[in-house]
Simulated scan of single mutants.
Amino acid sequence: MIKYRRALGGALTLAVAAGVTAGALAADRRPHAAATAAGSTDAAASQARLRGILHRLTTEDGAPGALVEYRDRRGSTVLTSGVADVKTGAPMRGDSRFRIGSMTKSYTATVMLQLVGEHRVDLDAPVERYLPGVVRGHGNDGRKITVRQLLQHTSGLPDVLDYLSPQEMLKDPLAHHDARELVGIALAHPPTFEPGEGWKYTNTGYLLAGMIIEKVTGRTYNDEIRRRIIRPLHLRETFVPGDSPEIPGPHPRGYVRPGEDAPLMDLTAFNPSSAGPAGGMISSGTDHNRFLDALVRGRLLRPAQLRQMMRTRPTGNPDGRAYGLGLESRPLPCGGVYWGHGGDILGYQTVSGATSDGRQATVMVNLDPGGPDAQDDDVEAAVQTALCGARPPAPAG
């Protein structure tokens, strides 16, 4: 689901899976003909490893299909493996749209930070200022929780998905879920910790963030994401579907495996209102990479707000990931860090990353939940392999 569900394999494990070495990266940087030839060889080997990871996702890991779209200043490449439909055997298309789950949080946080830049929202103001009386009960108190803490998962609020299981949604996947109703389900339980005293991923905070956006602007969060992000960036394959269970345009079927040995269940038609501003969007690898590039390189936020978004705190995971405001940083095995997010929603798993020098990668598979831990590891490894050099360097001179 939209719960933050990724295996906690360390950076060393992912570096081995990616097969990228510091020496290969250094060779790419030498500006002469020998370096260009060596870099091309390294990039070809890296792309071969990337194809191998996609093949493993669609064989050993059990996902029907997978794709990766990666790009840099020289252009973009899409690689696919497996099938979009297990009944017809139709291959995975490179221009496929997917449900992107919690990658939606980066869009929601971007809108909120734009409102901060317009002095319409204060990050360190209590939630109570914008949603009076909404966050109450069982020790939860909106007077003590700030907007920043909602976005950074430091609010201590219980996660609604701890109390709304995928099995319940499988019973009626087309049912509408109101954000206020979902928040109420979460607030019927005590907080995990006092605000600001810990870190725990919670979708409840982003449901409240969407409600704040609507209260401040007088428009739905769907409309604000379209008006502020989708239209300016010309993201023609990106949608905020609201209650619509359809995925517009070419897309793979989305599958879940309800038990270890259970057959795949087709859950392509699904009402994403249960995810809303925490995980309800649809996009393609091409569009999402364009969004990430614009975000990380300062085209969507003013410098002060981008710095706030990238001010991270450790999550406690041994791989070194840290969480900002709707955006996560993580070390690359070839050096440096990348920024991005992962997303899990019924039928689809997605992970993305971008670097400040203009590289982006998005990986998508059409099975979730029901894949093994190895699926999580391989999706992450594919992102890191793509970012660490699966494209030949530009010719010298």
Rank of each mutant, 00 (worst) to 15 (best):
R5I: 09
R5W: 09
G19D: 13
G23A: 14
G23Y: 06
P31E: 07
P31Q: 08
A33H: 11
T41A: 15
S46T: 07
Q47N: 10
A48F: 03
G52I: 01
I53T: 05
R56M: 08
T58R: 05
E60F: 04
V68S: 00
R71I: 00
R71Q: 06
T77K: 00
V78I: 04
T80L: 00
A90P: 02
S96A: 15
T104E: 14
H119E: 15
R120E: 11
L123V: 08
D124K: 02
R129T: 12
P132S: 10
G137T: 10
L150F: 03
L161Q: 10
Q167V: 11
P173F: 04
P173S: 06
A175M: 09
H176T: 12
H176D: 13
H177E: 06
A186N: 07
H189A: 06
T192C: 09
F193S: 06
G196S: 09
G196K: 08
Y201V: 02
Y201M: 05
T204S: 14
I213R: 05
E214R: 09
G218A: 05
D223M: 07
D223A: 15
E224K: 10
I225E: 12
R226A: 14
R236N: 13
E246I: 05
I247L: 11
H251Q: 04
G254P: 02
G254M: 02
Y255N: 04
P258I: 02
P258R: 02
P263W: 03
M265R: 14
D266Q: 06
S274N: 04
S283P: 03
R290K: 09
L292W: 04
R297E: 13
R299F: 02
R299Y: 02
R302T: 11
Q305T: 06
R307D: 13
M309D: 07
M310I: 02
M310S: 10
G320C: 05
P331D: 08
P333F: 06
V337Q: 10
W339H: 11
G340A: 13
H341V: 04
S352G: 13
M364W: 02
D368K: 01
P369E: 05
Q375R: 11
A382R: 02
Q384F: 01
C388Q: 04
R391N: 00
P392E: 00
P393R: 02
A396M: 00
G397T: 01
